[in-house]
Write a protein that binds this DNA or RNA. Structure first.
Lengths: 175, 175
DNA sequence: ACAAAGGTAAAATGATCGTTTTACCATGCA
DNA sequence: TGCATGGTAAAACGATCATTTTACCTTTGT
């Protein structure tokens, strides 16, 4: 089923570059190079398509930041932004566009963010000698979120700043 | 001209709660309790209205965070989020919904972010004894941005975490 | 040979979009 | 008295929205 992948790729790119609501199904069928009938047979509805795009993005992004140190975490984010461009967190953008009025999308966002926090918590724990430090993990999460968004208007320099701040906080916690 | 203020207030609330694109002019006229003719005479167009809302928000928000310490900066953010709710940065949301396809909105966003960075830079400078430290200021900016967004899904706890991280970074820079 | 599967193009559906128009009503000032 | 000013309601505008329908074309496996 190459069709579904083609659809998801086109949809992810368009949603990311032009926004979810502003991207119409007409533009999607053209970009994915398929008839609207085929699109609806695979996607179900636009909301379903958004959820599918988010699910695929979650897998891809979490795999991209599967690292073992805080330093590498921010390096991975920088690589991602250089490759894909930085337009903020796609999940929060989806949530913001619907105002939480679409429960399925709100659910996808909270699932992703929970897993993101979990990922960061594990990295932080590994760097501080296996100790549980939820407050420190939350600080790193905030830096990660901030780097993602600040990169929109300040470029990858913001990610570097975040990386240095994160390293400093970790080092301070270790002593 | 009470009419214009009524319009801007209603528009800001609806845009914030339901998104810019998803908020139609019909819903706006109902919320602002005025005819569409009156609305268009004051607003010009929807894009103009969005720009006007952002300009008003910029003034209001920057006034709310006009403080003299990093600690107070994050306390002010927490107060804001408690009062107005945390749905992320309205400017970046507007930018994300249009994908930068609307130059007037992109301009409003970059103007605001420049002034925000300036504000933070001054606070940081005051706290480090008048020295210029753009890297430290950028770290605080990233924490501020991250706190704004992480509060969407983690509540005000994320702002507290950011505040503590910021204070630690400032203290470390002072020694 | 045949039928199911999966695709196409193109038109139609009804709703909603942003915006403008038409026609009217109050107010206050000259 | 008269005439701007600033508002109202309601209809109409053409465009676009998400979605469905109709009718047809290729594959592919049995």
């Amino acid at each position: 089923m190459d069709t579904r992948r083609k659809l998801l790729c086109a949809a992810e790119a368009l949603f990311d570059r032009h926004g979810f609501t502003a991207t119409g199904m007409g533009r999607l069928t053209r970009a994915a190079d398929m008839s609207s009938r085929t699109l609806y047979k695979h996607a179900g509805s636009k909301a379903d398509l958004i959820v599918a795009v988010l699910a695929e993005r979650q897998q891809r992004f979490l795999r991209a930041i599967r690292v073992q140190s805080v330093e590498a975490l921010f390096a991975a984010l920088e690589t991602w932004v250089r490759r894909e461009g930085g337009r903020g967190c796609l999940f929060l953008r989806a949530y913001g566009e619907t105002g939480g009025d679409a429960p399925e999308i709100a659910q996808a966002v909270s699932t992703y963010k929970a897993e993101l926090f979990d990922t960061i918590e594990k990295i932080v724990s590994a760097e501080t000698g296996g100790t549980h430090q939820p407050e420190l993990a939350e600080q790193i999460l905030v830096l990660f979120e901030g780097a993602t968004w600040a990169a929109v208007y300040r470029g990858t320099g913001a990610i570097n700043a975040a990386r240095q701040a994160a390293v400093a906080l970790i080092q301070q916690a270790r002593s």
